[in-house]
Each structure stands twice: as structure tokens, then as C-alpha cells.
Design a protein around this nucleic acid. Structure first.
Lengths: 219, 219
DNA sequence: TGACATTAGTATCAACTCGGTACTAATTGC
DNA sequence: GCAATTAGTACCGAGTTGATACTAATGTCA
């Protein structure tokens, strides 16, 4: 193959782990058994649509959020020997994977082709980076969720604990969720109210400039 | 041409305008005279290096910050008929453009190929989006700059006025700049002290989650 | 030369925000 | 009923924000 390919890093929250969907690569033997879902690039269709279709086929579920993260050329050992790989990252609520596919916790991935490894790393970095600009955490959860679950997803992706009262104050102040009249009893303890993602747009951004993030990667 | 291409959106601050570098497309006649700097993709070199070289050649100046923004396939009328365009956005302090190249204010761009138009729009959106995560404003300015100039760049890119005292408080609290012993007298008014970008890294991010940005594009 | 306009930079303060601690609420298990 | 457990809230001190108003240093022009 001398053309381009399209690959999708589909992520979900699986208990206390963030998981990535990999598919069994039937064309190979013992090593490199797993790879990202990929397909040869079809010049006649939009990139987004191809990625969505590819994710849907591999996971058996629609990606509830999906965005392109870029083109990758390095790491020659691409499964299909594509010159250029256009990569996407997406999320979906957790459910069982389709045939020949499996969710792997990101901390415990099997070996994959070097270019796929680079794509996965970039995808996870983007997921963290865009967490406060795109509704990633909300799309990772089912339509109705408890605020505890939402906070757990944020903590999972950010890798640090958050203050419960502050988290809820900010959330309600942003008018991003609204309560349903359902409650979920999870064994012991008081039942939690279910919420749904229902953002109300605001006009224009307020507030000052936040420089703190610049101290992390001051290239 | 049936391969891939690489294009660079190089930006600078030109007075009160944000400007993009376009090059004269010699192969065409009256219409579509201008296009983004682009080159056929060379499979043997890293994407970043090719983009840096291309920007350097077109502007006659090094891009002080450069990052890939993705692959573009839509808008068939690419100047070189490339199947896929890998696009980069970069910034550079303002200086005169090289031969056959010209800085255009973003509000007053000449007609370009549809794919190039899409790339420019995406590049500017990324610039705004990454302003608080990458040192874009600092790289847009010369090595030494006044805090007034820095604030003006932020206001230009954000499209809104900022509060002077708050801006400076946040900036010094983030340990991103340090004063030089130079002062610049800009005609009338008190001279301004020159600063340089000299970030001191911090360990780990603090603070809660900011949901506000989610209310802008609640897809 | 001195008032004045102009731009740089700082001080003060009230309102707001954040995060720690400790509380109340509703459920299960014994 | 009572302890244990999880959900959700109240309070409060510390820190941050942004409006206003101030001081500082220069050029301009009478």
C-alpha cells in the first residue's frame, strides 16, 4: 500500500481505568497481534465521516465525540505500510467491544506498531488537553449520570483529586447540566440524583488570562 | 500530482492586525494569485522539519513557534492537486516578507483555493485556542517587549480588552517574564520597561476545573 | 520653563472564588 | 434501632479579581 490511512483511538472509562479500543490484526502471527482500528483513506469521503464509520465498525458503538488529532508519518512500521496516517481520537460510553476488538487500560497496553504507539500517546494527551474545552467527560458517560461519576471521570483524566463542593459549584454556575427526576441507589449509602448534559450557551468569554498552563511545557 | 502536500500558515502581529503570509502563485494568471506556502510532502523527512523549512523559505525568517494542526482533504481545488494537505500554524515576530510573499491582515485576505481557506480558518482558531497553553503571544513578539505590547497581542488574539493590573498580576505570579534593564521611549508618555520571556517551570497543576469554555461550543 | 497631554505602572478596596472542615441527608446491613 | 456508607450542603478564612483612582516619567507647546 502506498496511499494514506485513517486510524481512530477510541477511549472509554472502564471502572477506575481509561481504556483504548484495539482490534486483532488477523494478517499477522504471534507478535503485533493488536492494532488501532484503521482503514485505507477513501479520497471521495470526508475524513470525519470515515473516522466515525471506522470507530463504529470496530466498537459496535457510535463515538459520542470524535476529533482529528493530526497526521503522522514517523514510525515506519505501520500495519498497512501507509505513507501518512490521519489520526482521530474519540470517546464513547463503556460497553462490551465488538468481535475481534478489546478494551485495554491505557496503563497496560499490548505492544503495537511504533506509529500506532505514537498516535495513542498523542490522542491521550489531546484528550487531557481538551477536557476543559470540549464536553469529553460528558460524552464518556451515559446520557444520565451522577455528579460523582462525572467528577470521577475528571479525576481519572486529570490524574488528581478534585474538591467536591468546588466541582459542583463550578458546574452549576456554568449551566452545563440539569437534574433529572431519577435517582440511583448503588448498594449502600444515599442514592445519587441523575443529571443530564444540557449546556446553555453564554455570550462572550469573561475573565482574565490564565498563564498557569504555560509553566508546564515552556518550549 | 497525486501525493500529499504540506502547508504552513505563518502569522504575525502587524500593528493592530493579525496578519498571514501568502505567496504569489506564479503558475496561475489573474485569479487565485495568492496561496499558502506549500510543498510536496517528502516521505524521508519529519513533518515538523519540512514545515519549518517551508516557512523559513517563504518568510525569510524562522517561525518562533510552529505546530501541526491536522490533515485536510476537503475543497478539491488545491493549487498542486494534492490528495491530502498536512497543515501547520506558526508565528514569527513581524518583519518584511521575502520576495513573492506578502503579509495580509486576516480581515482582508485575497481569494485563495477553498482548501487553503479552510486551513487558514482552522489555523487562526487553533491560535486563539492554544493561546493559554503555548507561548504564542511571546513568540509573536521580539525577544524583548513591553508589557503593553504583550497585552495588546493578547487582546488582538482574544478579541477583547483586558484589565491592565490583573494582566500584570497574573503574569508576574506565573513567573513567565523577567525585566531587562532596558526601557523604551515610544514618543510621548513615560518609557516602558522591556521584559523577556523566561518561564520557570512549576510542578503539577493546581486549581479546580474551569467549565466556562464549554459554554462556547457545546457540540 | 512650566502647564498639560500621554503613556507606564501601582495602590486600595469591595466583591467574588476557592478549598478545607464539618455538617446534614438518605440509604443498607446488622 | 444504630453503625456504616455514600450524597450533598454550609460555613468560613484565604486568596483572587477588576473597578477606580492614584503616582511616575516622558514629549509638546505655549
Amino acid at each position: 500500500m502506498r496511499g494514506n490511512s485513517i486510524e481512530t483511538v477510541l477511549c472509554t472509562a472502564h471502572g477506575r481505568h481509561l481504556a483504548v479500543l484495539l482490534v486483532r490484526d488477523e494478517s499477522k502471527k504471534a507478535r503485533d497481534k493488536w492494532s488501532l482500528p484503521w482503514a485505507a483513506l477513501d479520497e471521495s469521503a470526508a475524513l470525519d465521516d470515515q473516522a466515525a464509520r471506522s470507530a463504529n465498525k470496530a466498537a459496535g458503538a457510535r463515538a459520542t465525540w470524535l476529533v482529528q488529532i493530526g497526521a503522522f508519518a514517523e514510525g515506519k512500521r505501520h500495519p498497512g505500510k501507509a505513507e501518512l496516517s490521519v489520526a482521530f481520537v474519540g470517546v464513547t460510553p463503556h460497553r462490551a467491544a465488538a468481535k475481534n476488538a478489546k478494551w485495554f487500560p491505557v496503563a497496560d497496553l499490548p505492544p503495537v506498531a511504533p506509529r500506532h504507539r505514537a498516535i495513542i500517546d498523542a490522542a491521550l494527551a489531546q484528550l487531557r488537553d481538551r477536557l476543559d474545552r470540549a464536553p469529553i467527560a460528558f460524552r464518556l458517560l451515559p446520557a444520565n449520570f451522577t455528579l460523582g461519576e462525572l467528577q470521577a471521570v475528571y479525576e481519572l483524566l486529570l490524574g488528581r483529586r478534585l474538591h467536591k463542593a468546588s466541582f459542583r459549584r463550578s458546574l452549576t454556575a456554568a449551566f452545563l447540566v440539569e437534574p433529572t427526576d431519577e435517582w440511583r441507589s448503588e448498594g449502600r449509602g444515599r442514592p445519587a440524583q441523575l443529571f443530564r448534559y444540557a449546556p446553555r450557551k453564554s455570550r462572550g468569554r469573561r475573565g482574565g488570562v490564565r498563564f498557569e498552563a504555560l509553566r508546564e511545557s515552556p518550549a
